[in-house]
Design a binder for these strands. Structure first.
Lengths: 245, 245
DNA sequence: CGGAGTCTTGAGCCTCGTCAACACGTGTGG
DNA sequence: CCACACGTGTTGACGAGGCTCAAGACTCCG
């Protein structure tokens, strides 16, 4: 099932000197347009219990009782944990179309915050089990822990360039299903969010992205708009197999 | 339930110059003794289907079909994955008394190898579900993915000293339940195994352990015998909260 | 247009990886 | 019994990668 309408196949000018996209204003406007085709949702739950969060707001806290399931209509959620010394760790993200719960035995394991303005559909476990059309959500929930674990394991063993390349690649796949060379996507995360996920500093993330640009692998327009210019090179850069799990 | 008999409460001489244990040969022999009180197992499955693995042997391979559950009688199992470029990543370990399956949707997610000579009890999911006395195993399996994920997240955000301290602390807790200051334990892992788990090199692991010794936090006798000399300092060193999950 | 926050870039330092040498324990063969 | 080889562990010297600190540019607001 393809939930997300993505802006693809455009042509845009490229300045080889800096590797920045210099597309028209209208193209950018299109890329910022709402990402969800609401007609794509198949069930009577459609339009029920949509919750909105402003950027930075908290959905639930680490340790809170609860095991509800959320599906993202638009925006990006981050899963956060804070160390004793105050360092912030991000365990993962969820983007449009994806579902999450990150709960175990009736408690949420991480704090969920809106990394950008968000719309969510909330379901109880009971509702989810009763709705036979939502098997794909059940699937995703069953593997969410292993998916997050597998990503963490990779990041722990990659250097900064590999981590950043891997991250861009994975987010492109998730934000633009059917992603191909030239696909444009908007990543609504701050450099700090990316850094706290990859276990790096914002400065290192910036430099890594710049290196991807100067290598001709990535195009950027502003901090949040990306286009992959050389997919094969990006995969090599990331030192990656095709996505697992 | 306490499955493991542990050698505790001994006194041994300590050479402050190097921080090495200089205990008697008999004490060491006791620490090497079999760790399992077989009378501790409560069910008729006792003594059934015990499998033995020599150090280095493989229990199952990453991607193999299967979802059997294993409980470790003695020894240590490591969960391994290999990168495209050949780097070895270790996702976790299981030690005496613990249970694991690391399977999802009928396939094992990592290769399981004996990090030391091992004895295992194998159960099918069906047997496990039918045996009401084994609820503690079901509990553990449900959280195994989250447990591994949580550890990976911590390690990703810790520097080498913190990672090594954290690792020693966690393994002490697991190998010596009720671990207290002075508890002695045997860690049957090579420095390479530790390094591939923490995302470090063997040299860095060696230096980290030495630093724990020279700080008066840890005692060592040979590469595999440890005793915690200052628990509070170790916790501070590791930058850790009490163990979660 | 101005201000706050975010992003980017540079300079310098420190941690950790690399390479190399040596120590130690164990098993094997003479 | 010793000599030797081999694998593992330990330590040192050195360099590269990533963090810190600092300054400036850009974005997004009002």
């Amino acid at each position: 099932m393809r939930l997300i309408e993505q802006v693809t196949g455009e042509t845009f000018r490229f300045d080889p000197g800096v590797g920045r996209i210099t597309g028209s204003a209208s193209a950018e406007a299109a890329a910022r347009a709402p990402a969800i085709r609401s007609s794509g949702f198949p069930t009577p739950l459609h339009r029920r219990r949509i919750e909105s969060l402003k950027m930075g707001q908290t959905l639930f806290l680490d340790g809170d009782p609860g095991d509800d399931v959320f599906q993202i209509v638009s925006g990006t959620i981050r899963f956060v944990s804070v160390q004793l010394d105050g360092r912030r760790m991000i365990a993962g993200f969820a983007v449009g179309g994806e579902a999450f719960s990150i709960s175990h035995r009736g408690h949420y394991l991480y704090t969920a915050e809106a990394a950008s303005d968000c719309q969510l559909r909330r379901m109880t476990r009971r509702e989810l089990a009763a709705d036979g059309t939502r098997g794909f959500i059940v699937d995703r929930l069953e593997r969410e822990a292993w998916a997050l674990q597998g990503e963490m394991l990779l990041l722990l063993h990659k250097d900064s360039d590999e981590s950043i390349g891997h991250f861009i690649l994975r987010m492109a796949e998730r934000l633009a299903p059917g992603m191909a060379e030239g696909t444009r996507f908007r990543l609504d995360l701050s450099r700090a969010d990316i850094a706290d996920y990859l276990g790096l500093t914002v400065e290192t993330v910036c430099r890594g992205i710049r290196r991807l640009r100067t290598q001709g692998i990535l195009l950027t327009e502003g901090p949040h708009l990306f286009a992959i210019r050389n997919l094969a090179a990006l995969r090599r850069w990331a030192g990656d197999a095709e996505s697992g799990i």
